[in-house]
Write a protein that binds this DNA or RNA. Structure first.
Length: 466
RNA sequence: GGCGGCAUAGCCAAGUGGUAAGGCAGAGGACUGCAAAUCCUUUACCCCCGGUUCGAAUCCGGGUGCCGCCUCCA
């Protein structure tokens, strides 16, 4: 059964069939690096990181591209406020972006192209659009002629009349139609600018994705993704200009993720309720945040609250405990291969996991399969007799699906066992043997203060970090 | 005004026709020197009113409430 994806373009769930059978060209709109990213940005990057990992697991050769918008009005504004140049501001927030993403376990894209490093490609695109009659220059600005293309509005499902009616009246009345958008903007004095056939200026926002996507992925992408608000106008405009430019479909599947609300309100600057990842990282671990972001279906809104994330902590503890106990059980296991029962259970878990992810990337259900795996792990660990092979197979499953694909499970390294703790444990065992329970409890309490939890099991004492 | 989404237990959250997943929190039990962990059991008038159907959280109609997009906001 093929992977089913909800495609914004058709507003239907469709079987996923890339242009080439075993290759996926995947483009995600990255951040505008004028500031630290917020939790809503992070949802995009974390979720599509999982999609990319899953597609790779499914055998596709994935080329994953995510851009940085490193020049635009907001960057210019920010550079004035910070008293730094635009490139300096961009560089600082790109570094910050990677720090935040590393903490959330998001892998680097194959390419992170920056707008300012592709000025030539954008100018080539603009020139081609002018030649084809899809763009026109007015006094140093270049605009795209939106109405020239018949299917403008298809992605956002808006009839042109409505778009026109809803369009804001802009100060700039040099455009032929209010729907036209800037491909090239003339520089004001002192602004960062590049030379061009139309005079000094900078690229408009939408053209960078079209130019960079084509350069790194070709004329037609398999998947183009981003936040739901990008649907209009950004993605609509990308489609228009790219297809006018290349004469080919721009992207086969458009994926848009839902927003994060603060309570029931939209998170927005004007409401002053924006949660930056940078700040959240002081309150929560990156793993808690990642788990939180994957705990609901990607197209549904998530309500952010401290209570919600605190609940995640309990869930993570359950998984970590199982993983640690599994590791501990290994030392007292019998030699031997994985049992047929275990193999069968793991096959079923794999089927369920794939079923969840194939069903429009349902990470919430994939996580519930992870909990089934945890439950089975706990049963195995509690058995009187279990083979090392069975435990290793279980461990491998958790590592692969929970760790490699979802990025939520962290394995423990048995070599972590520290001699000092082992000595204490030995001492406590002696005390218990002598029925000196107060001494035994004292040692346990002492270790507890260091964050080490001791647990008595039929296979001996095990310990883990709290 | 146009387009679209959502409403499921104390909380979070799956579920697009066949007796309501999973997690957190709570309760009871088993196990334990005491614990911890684990296992078992337990917690739902699926927003309201109609309709279709043998059968609806799921489809249709009408309400109510909330939310998003409609030019640079993930």
């Amino acid at each position: 059964m093929a992977i089913q994806l909800y495609n914004t373009l058709t507003r239907e769930r469709e079987p996923f069939q890339p242009l080439e059978d075993d290759r996926v060209r995947f483009y995600v709109c990255g951040p505008t690096v004028y500031n630290f990213i917020h939790i809503g940005n992070a949802r995009v990057f974390v979720f599509f990181d999982v999609v990319r990992r899953y597609l790779t697991y499914r055998g596709y050769e994935v080329t994953y591209v995510q851009n940085f918008t490193d020049v635009d009005d907001r960057l210019i504004k920010q550079s004035i406020e910070e008293g730094r140049t635009v490139p300096e501001v961009a560089a600082a927030y790109i570094d910050a972006y990677f720090e935040d993403m590393d903490d959330l376990g998001v892998k680097r894209a194959d390419v992170h192209p920056r707008a300012t490093e592709h000025i030539k490609e954008m100018q080539d695109a603009i020139r081609a659009l002018i030649e084809k009659g899809f763009a026109y220059e007015v006094d140093g600005d270049v605009y795209y002629r939106s109405l020239k293309k018949e299917n403008y509005g298809a992605l956002s499902n808006q009839p042109l009349e409505e778009l026109k009616a809803g369009a804001r009246i802009e100060v700039n009345d040099r455009k032929e139609s209010p729907l036209d958008f800037a491909l090239w903007k003339k520089a004001k004095p002192g602004e960062i600018a590049w030379d061009s056939p139309w005079g000094k200026g900078r690229p408009g926002w939408h053209i960078e994705c079209s130019a960079m996507a084509r350069k790194y992925l070709g004329d037609t992408l398999d998947i183009h993704a981003g936040g739901t608000d990008l649907c209009f106008p950004h993605h609509e405009n990308e489609i228009a200009q790219s297809e006018a430019w290349t004469g080919k479909p721009f992207a086969r599947y458009w994926l848009h993720n839902g927003f994060i609300n603060m309570g029931s309100e939209k998170m927005s600057k004007s409401l002053g309720n924006v949660e930056r990842v940078r700040d959240l990282r002081g309150r929560y671990t990156g793993r808690e945040l990642r788990w939180f972001l994957l705990s609901a279906h990607y197209r549904n809104p998530i309500s952010f609250s401290d209570e919600s994330i605190n609940q995640i902590g309990g869930a993570i503890a359950r998984v970590d405990t199982a993983v640690a106990n599994l590791s501990h059980r290994m030392s007292a296991a019998m030699d031997g291969e994985a049992s047929e029962e275990v193999r069968e259970r793991l096959r079923l878990l794999t089927t369920d996991f794939e079923g969840a992810m194939d069903d429009d990337l349902n990470t919430a259900n994939a996580i519930s399969v992870l909990f089934e795996a945890v439950h089975f792990t706990n049963e195995l660990v509690a058995k009187d007799v279990v083979s090392r092979g069975s435990l290793e197979a279980m461990q491998g499953w958790l590592h692969h699906f929970g760790g490699e694909i979802l990025g939520l499970v962290e394995m423990v390294d048995e070599a972590d066992l520290e001699a000092e703790i082992e000595t204490k444990i030995e001492e406590r065992q002696q005390a218990r043997k002598n029925r000196d329970f107060s001494r035994a409890d004292a040692i346990r309490d002492e270790l507890a203060k260091q964050g080490i939890l001791l647990e008595d099991t039929p296979q001996g004492i095990r310990w883990r970090r709290k």
